[in-house]
Amino acid sequence: MGSRGFPVRRTLTGYAFLAPSLLGVIGFLLVPVLVVIGISLHRWDLVSPARWVGLDNYAALLDDLAFWQSLLITGMFVALVVPAQVVLGLLTAVLLDRRLPGSVVFRTVFVLPWISAPLALGVVWRWIFDPSDGALNAFTGVRVEWLSDPDLALPAVVVATVWQHVGYVALFFLAGLAGIPAQFPEAARIDGANAGQVFRRITLPLLRPTMFFVVVTGLLTTFQTFDTVYAMTQGGPAGATDVIASLIYREAFTNFRMGRAAAMSVVLLLLLITVTVAQQLYFRKRTTYEVS
């Protein structure tokens, strides 16, 4: 890396190559975030002129019961979805990695839910859970009102969401597994480790970077789940599945309280940044093994 030539020009060339994605980041990420922060400081119903209210929208969130309730539900939703999809995804990846007959077909089948439109899948799941004519109740022969019972609706949406994500998670673990050189587990086995020990002491630690990626992206997408909930329950029954994105949507586009909705979005953004940073610190403390 010699610094001969024209550093300024080199830097500019570098930025020129970055420009397309940089424009994307600025136009579709940075600007919207700033705009939302701006809106959150106003009172605006879209059709009347916006009025500056300072931090009023944030203050109002403090004693907005629906907002806290929704954060709680989102937290429960994330706590159920993310561990389940990571464990099931890992399990699926390990099984697919065995290269049993049909592995290739299954690999494709597992990813199908991920590439399908969540809204369409939500409609299908709503039909599966339909109390009178649904597939699930017809199969079990017991009438359960899955999506109308406040105790069952959230678990039902969790099942649909996990099912959608598992294939995607498995795909990453599969790539992670492929990156582990065969001699490591082999050496361990020669030293007398059994299959369980190899998995716990060799495979899992070496999968840590994948684990980090899968957990972080899983948390981020799950925190913002909207389509599946919208299609299956619209936040009901009695607000039992009213996750934060669903509440923000309603506040903005049914109640036309743009300022409030923007303030909620900003809080969600801060929350997600906190969670991500915390995770990064947690995973950084643990050693990651460079395998190359």
Binding site: F28, V31, P32, V33, V35, V36, I39, Q224, F226, A245, I248, Y249, A252, M258, A261, A262, S265, L268, L269
Partner: peptide, 12 residues
């Protein structure tokens, strides 16, 4: 953030 994108589209 989908909600942000929606708000942007709406403003533009």
């Amino acid at each position: 953030m989908r909600v942000l994108v929606v708000l942007l589209l709406l403003l533009s």
